[in-house]
Amino acid sequence: MKKKKLVMDIRGLTKYYGKVVGIEGLDLKVYEGEIMGFLGPNGAGKTTTIRACLDLIHKSDGVVNIFGLDSHRDSLEIRRRTGYLPGDFGMYPDLKVRTILKYLLSQNGISDTTRMEELARSFELDLDRKYGELSKGNRQKAGIVQAFMADQDLIMLDEPTSGLDPLMQKKFYGFLREERENGKTIFMSSHILAEVEEVCDRVAIIRNGHLQVVENIHSLKEKMGKKLVVEFENSVDTGLFEMEGVNDFSIDGRMVTMIVTSNLDEVIKTVSRQNIINMSLETFSLEHLFLTYYSRGGRDP
């Protein structure tokens, strides 16, 4: 199997703002052609990480290599190959969006505006309106078009769907998947769990500037287990479920709730030996996983 090419290689990335920790000892690898979700609440260090990668802020310690290039020394080359959507941004309020985007394209040495026009059409963005006249959602669309129009290899997105309506969000998720199919690598921060779950291949969870976990979303869900709720006809012996793979076992009358992390087949067979009135098996959402991480102070679930 072909080994995936490493696009972002972050080792021990640390950023202090005076005595305040922005991020500390962050290790993260992002591979070519994947969408990596960077999850965390406000102030967790997501924006700091992205901005340190683009050399907009200077790291206090650690190594950041992007495309094998040093984030500070080779920042120009990195920025040549990276599109970026900041979390909070502005443009020239008195100029038309088309003028602004053409200027930014020209900074990348591109005069062909075909892709810019296509993206604007796709996201229903009127290029001939002044940026200052746009609504919050349309400004976000302008930011998205800006991030993708130079057709760069890596795209860093900080809270990309902020201000977009649900329909536009759906369209954007589809667009991200298309871009991934085209070989783009996408690193996006978000605090919207559903969107990370919907589009990302892997997720990194950050809390108070420290990375908690980096995992394939499906593996993570598997690791989290499934919630099995069974209503028996009669009371059951608690010892019955003391078996491998069953965690957080609880009984409320004839209702039994357990978290099954492995050995599901054996657990179901054991349950089915009793008379069952009702039963549900539920996969945990990323939200549950996220909350679990936070409620446990970042320890493994």
Binding site: R51, Y84, F89, G90, M91, L104, Q107, N108
Partner: peptide, 14 residues
Amino acid sequence: EEGRMDILLSQPVS
């Protein structure tokens, strides 16, 4: 102040 420095300096311009 108008919040565009991030975008301007994320372009390949030193």
